[in-house]
Computed example of a mutant assay.
Amino acid sequence: MAGTFLNLNDNDQEEAPEPTIGAGLKQKKKGSRPRADAEAVAAAGRANGFSRSTDTAQPLPTPRRGRPPLNEDMTYWRIYVSSDLRTQLNALRDKEGRRLNDVLADMLDAYQNGNAK
């Protein structure tokens, strides 16, 4: 009796087939995508320090000692140094776990004491 009024030829006992909800989605074709290379993704993650491994994590480098005291007057100073000198200073800083400011202050003291002789 769908769509008509007082249609005597309709059989009320038979249900009219109705489309099921979402049937159109099942017929829709999906475009295929290439799968990501798992090894390339893992290599990129390792390069940035990320790993999906469940092994124990590598210990992080210890934080540098010698945060500036609360009332110490610090100044930003931009200087240009060679990349080799910068690498060596940073390696010394990381090896000793000190601030670069403290490393430079000790170097200045050693220089001044050496020239005073």
Score class of each variant (00 low, 15 high):
A38W: 08
R33C: 03
M74S: 15
A110V: 02
A44P: 07
L108A: 02
Y111T: 00
R65F: 13
G24H: 04
A110L: 03
N90Y: 02
R98A: 09
G49R: 01
E18P: 02
L89A: 01
R99L: 12
N90C: 02
P61G: 09
D73K: 15
N48A: 12
G49Y: 03
L70R: 15
T20Q: 15
D109T: 07
A16V: 10
I79G: 00
G31E: 15
E14N: 06
R98Y: 08
P63M: 12
D109G: 02
D106I: 01
L8G: 00
A2C: 04
T62E: 14
M107Y: 04
T20R: 13
E18G: 08
S51A: 06
P68S: 10
P17S: 01
Y80A: 06
N48H: 11
A44Q: 14
S32G: 08
A23N: 03
R65N: 15
R99M: 11
N9C: 03
G97D: 09
E18M: 10
P69D: 07
W77H: 15
A36S: 04
K30W: 07
T75I: 10
E39N: 14
E96R: 09
K26N: 08
R33P: 07
L89D: 00
A16P: 06
V41R: 07
E14R: 03
G31W: 13
N9M: 09
L70C: 13
L100P: 01
T20S: 13
R78G: 08
A40G: 07
A91Q: 09
N9V: 03
G31D: 14
T75P: 01
A42N: 04
D37Y: 06
L8I: 02
I21A: 14
S51R: 04
D10Q: 07
P69V: 10
P17T: 01
P19K: 05
T62W: 12
Q58N: 15
D10I: 10
T56W: 10
N11W: 04
A91W: 11
K95R: 15
N7S: 03
A47L: 07
K117W: 05
G3M: 02
L92F: 13
P19A: 09
Q58K: 15
K30S: 14
G22W: 07
L85D: 02
T62K: 14
G97C: 08
R46F: 05
D37S: 06
R33Q: 10
Q13A: 10
K26E: 07
V81G: 00
E15G: 05
R65L: 13
R86K: 11
D12C: 05
A38E: 14
P69N: 11
G24M: 03
G31Y: 14
E14H: 03
A40P: 08
G114D: 07
A105Q: 12
M1A: 08
K29Q: 10
D12G: 10
K30T: 11
E18I: 11
N71K: 10
A91F: 06
A16N: 04
D12R: 08
M107I: 01
L85W: 01
D55Y: 10
F5N: 08
P61T: 12
S51H: 06
N7F: 01
